[in-house]
Amino acid sequence: MKKSEYNVIGVMSGTSLDGIDLVAVKFQFNNSWDFKITHSETVSYSEEWYNTLKKLVTFSIEDLKKIDVDYTKYLAGIIKNFITKNTLENIDAVCSHGHTALHQPKKKLTYQIGNLPNLTSLLGEKVVCDFRVQDVELGGQGAPLVPIGDKLLFLDYDYCINLGGFANISTEVEDNRIAHDICPVNIVLNHYVSKLGFNYDDEGKIASTGKINQELLNQLNNLSFYKENYPKSLGLEWVNMHVFPLVDSFKLEVKDVLKTFVEHISFQIASEINKKSNATVLITGGGVYNTYLINSLKTYTEHVIVVPNNQIVEYKEALIFALLGVLRLRKQVNCLKSVTGATKDHSSGKIYLP
């Protein structure tokens, strides 16, 4: 008989490099899933790690393997400290996404660092991790993985959108959960605002002072990715190839880049959510603190936009990776073919025993 209650830790590091998100979660299953986040924390990256992770796509596989060893030790130390600091006991598993180093599903390649087997010996806990690899092997995009959690934990919303390094969306279409990346968000905004010495544009105040460059906006909206059908996903490589060179060719002031790109984000998100009428949209991720972006989006749609409490805003992805780990332990589907394009639904992730 399967357990109905689980105490797990969820660990997530996203492309926006805000840090490592950790949650301690109690899940209960009684015909449907309930959860309670008991502890949560984001550990910011050191400058050294921030700079290394920012350049991961430029390293050779050999170099990435060396970085992987160091990152796994670093991650283990952070998780261990989280466990000790919060006196967490009777942990069923640590469920960790790791950090994406390479993601080229068309080449059957995806690599998340921080998922080495020695993570379990360093922690002394059962570990469930490396959730993307099996999906890519099954012909899927290996992303996004969060929609199964949207389906099971946030079923009251017509759309779930996360604004992190990229905006991604999940929803039900003809009784199938579908999801895909929409467009870049913080990975671009933070890149340009860093030229002014800031890590991010606080509340979008700098963007709000800029001017929209209509020609750049048109060219961004005409990028071929936006015409592709789902399943589809984005990575830093795509941004490096298609977005940065295009934006840089206009030689605009940073505030004008930010304002134009916020308009681009709003347009692309609205293009997706306006496919339904009278919808309720849950928006989470660090991008919700960009007040200017949220207000810009509201001008493009009449839907009800819901920004939940800060804990869900900031830790929804870590929460859902915790759930993915629990589903894997239960040998239940945690990866949907309707989302990733894999040949079948499957239970994905490696289980390491201490």
Rank of each mutant, 00 (worst) to 15 (best):
Q268K: 12
K255R: 13
V243L: 11
F244Y: 15
M241N: 09
E272C: 10
L258T: 15
E272Y: 09
E272G: 01
H242V: 01
F250H: 12
H264Q: 06
L252K: 09
K251R: 12
V262F: 14
D256H: 05
K275P: 03
F250I: 10
F261G: 00
I273R: 03
V243E: 02
T260F: 01
H242I: 04
F244S: 04
L258A: 09
H242L: 10
A270V: 06
K255S: 13
S249L: 02
I273Y: 04
D248T: 08
T260M: 08
S271Y: 06
S266W: 08
V243W: 13
I269V: 14
N240I: 07
V257D: 08
V247D: 00
I273S: 02
S266K: 05
N274D: 06
V257T: 11
N240T: 07
L246Y: 02
S271R: 11
V262H: 12
F250E: 11
F244L: 01
L246Q: 01
L252F: 13
P245L: 08
S249I: 04
E272N: 07
F261P: 00
L252Q: 15
M241G: 03
E263G: 01
S249R: 10
S249W: 10
N274L: 07
V243M: 10
K275M: 02
T260H: 01
N240G: 11
N274F: 05
A270N: 11
L258W: 08
F250R: 11
L246N: 00
E263V: 06
L246T: 00
H242A: 10
E253I: 08
